[in-house]
Design a protein around this nucleic acid. Sequence first.
DNA 1: ACCGTGTTGTTGACGTGTCCTCAAAATATG
DNA 2: CATATTTTGAGGACACGTCAACAACACGGT
Lengths: 154, 154
Amino acid sequence: MGEARWLDEQEARVWKMYRDLRRDLQSAQDRQLLRDSGLSGADYALLVPLSEAPDGLLRSRELGREVGWERSRLSHQIIRMEKRGLVTRESCADDARGAMVRLTVSGRTAIEAAAPLHVETVRRCFFDPLTSQEVDALESLIGKMLDAVGREQE
Amino acid sequence: MGEARWLDEQEARVWKMYRDLRRDLQSAQDRQLLRDSGLSGADYALLVPLSEAPDGLLRSRELGREVGWERSRLSHQIIRMEKRGLVTRESCADDARGAMVRLTVSGRTAIEAAAPLHVETVRRCFFDPLTSQEVDALESLIGKMLDAVGREQE
DNA sequence: ACCGTGTTGTTGACGTGTCCTCAAAATATG
DNA sequence: CATATTTTGAGGACACGTCAACAACACGGT
């Protein structure tokens, strides 16, 4: 392998800006969620697809697909949320391996209270500072990077 | 407070794309680092400013400022890295509260081996898919979002 | 029916990140 | 000088994420 291609000045700057945005945006949103609704980011991520499912009921595998998590991570998080009364676990009639996850009344109350405030925060930090043309451009940029990252994992 | 301003179709799509990129890019890079160099992302983040400091020596507070971490997180991580022999802790002559962090020979070897491979991965996932104009646009977009997130935390 | 293979979910170990508290030392204030 | 206040770092408790191992089940072909 030959000489490394280092980042030029602009690239190093943009790369640092991206990492700062990643860190600050995530922490700003997690803190807003916890402060205003008592939910963690992980709670919220699971509550959204559950609240959209019929009867607030989803098979664990499906839920995992919705959020793009590994099975282990999902299992740990569901157990934590069950302890806090946000969801319950039930066995699956169709497939004896499966586990069904059901949103509790308390869980639905929590997500419905949290969602508007959270969306407002996403707006303020992410979309409000951009023009409509800039959102178009951003979509195209992120799409290209997602393709590249996807190829990385093969 | 009135009706919530929900995200429109494009906004929801872009927001999800951003979160996917955040997740996949981070995990791709962390896995590449660990596989090729035996370092975690947290290790790498601290080793970079340490390797650039004179004598590989930095005061803990300065190191925290470089990477933008809280003191507690930094303290935990330094202790873990000391156990693995990447750094050592020394007392600070100027300020008896202070702690100095020094890169070990083994730590310098590790970061110097890891850096070229890591930069190459950043290139493949982040910069190679973009034209030079697109990098310009991205810098401007991220800048605006960083400003907005910064205002959030006041 | 049987066997091999893939899928689904759980579990334990470990590294990581945040919150909170504590103690020591430096610094500001009266 | 004496007393707050702030700064710095350590450390415990807890939530989170990944990995590897495991058990139970589904499904295909024979």
